[in-house]
Design a protein around this nucleic acid. Sequence first.
DNA 1: TGTTGCCTTGACCGGATGGTCAAATCGACG
DNA 2: CGTCGATTTGACCATCCGGTCAAGGCAACA
Lengths: 209, 209
Amino acid sequence: MSNQNEPDHKRSRIQIRNREKIIAAALDVFSRDGFRGATVDDIAAAADMSKPNLLYYFPSKESVYEALLKGLLTDWLAPLQELDADGDPMVEIAAYIERKIELARDYPRESRLFANEMLRGAPILKDVLTSDLKHLVDGKATVLRDWSNAGQIAKVDPYHLIFAIWASTQHYADFDVQVRAVLGDDGEGRFNDAARFLRSLFLDGLRPR
Amino acid sequence: MSNQNEPDHKRSRIQIRNREKIIAAALDVFSRDGFRGATVDDIAAAADMSKPNLLYYFPSKESVYEALLKGLLTDWLAPLQELDADGDPMVEIAAYIERKIELARDYPRESRLFANEMLRGAPILKDVLTSDLKHLVDGKATVLRDWSNAGQIAKVDPYHLIFAIWASTQHYADFDVQVRAVLGDDGEGRFNDAARFLRSLFLDGLRPR
DNA sequence: TGTTGCCTTGACCGGATGGTCAAATCGACG
DNA sequence: CGTCGATTTGACCATCCGGTCAAGGCAACA
């Protein structure tokens, strides 16, 4: 996943490289241990540098965390962004679910990072949630409602439909231990089974009637 | 929610009362701040006693956390436990979803507590997940599969059906900030809307065809 | 080779935090 | 009341951790 946040004008090659190294290491550590559980020393070690050196590039632990979250946000919301009002409703919804499952499979650390932030009450992202996220969801909810009204999908609450897709896909990243405990370690098989199940659940559940 | 874990034989009235007070306070603090973020002082203050006094009743912070989690486990799994193989499939599934939504509404702290534990990789509950939880889910998955084979519900993977119900209901407790950010503060209205949506999604999605 | 400015780090600081301990207080019972 | 075990706590300790600082390394350029 890409991660360019701040404008990198005015930054030397070394600064760009080291900030990237730090952010990459931070994703590993924060997603594993949570904000409170992660230590600056851990992140520095994972980035293969000393703690004071890390703090030369970022003023604080929280600033690393914030840069990480905000840098990932666009990528994280891209799948919903791509939901196309002009496409075929069932195809669009199926594709959205597919993209979200792939995200849970390929970027579980990002998913857990956001889950952690939400559980904490989103102290860093709260503002973004009520502005950017809300606007995005409002827009796509309108698209879904239009499809409903046009009889192309069942008449359902579009907001809760979006929540259900989020929850049921991210579950495979956020609750990975639990899923593995129940299913046993199965390579990546569970993602295919989940995709098949969710596709049939949502497509049949949303079939206009 | 009830919470009796250890046998309370051999415990004085005061011991029972104070252990309960501590566990109740711990639920508040751990569910809000996570295991790492919670401090013994916070829990003691919430239980209205001194830190050494708390540590007179429990040997460590982790032991409080463990007693709390294990004490809630039975209650937490009760809704699935109640899924009745002899009932009408659609009615049973609808009732299960209803119970889970009520749990998310009425016991969000418990939901977030478990979510936190899962995100951490379930260091305390791992064993319980692979034994008790797995056996419970295996049993109920068999019930669901039988219903599938009897043509009473659609042919779907019963494990992923259970995961989807878990995820889509618990979402309203665990991601409460996000839900509120998108929907606005709406009293408890979102729970009714969610229940209605999920009922129609799952019942239509599982209708045998 | 000397100078300059960016980069790196060992050593350290202060506050937070989990846990201990000895002493004080309480309360049930003789 | 007096005794004794249960309960409670102020003071304390060791460690962890975020963050600072002064000094040292290093690369580019004159």
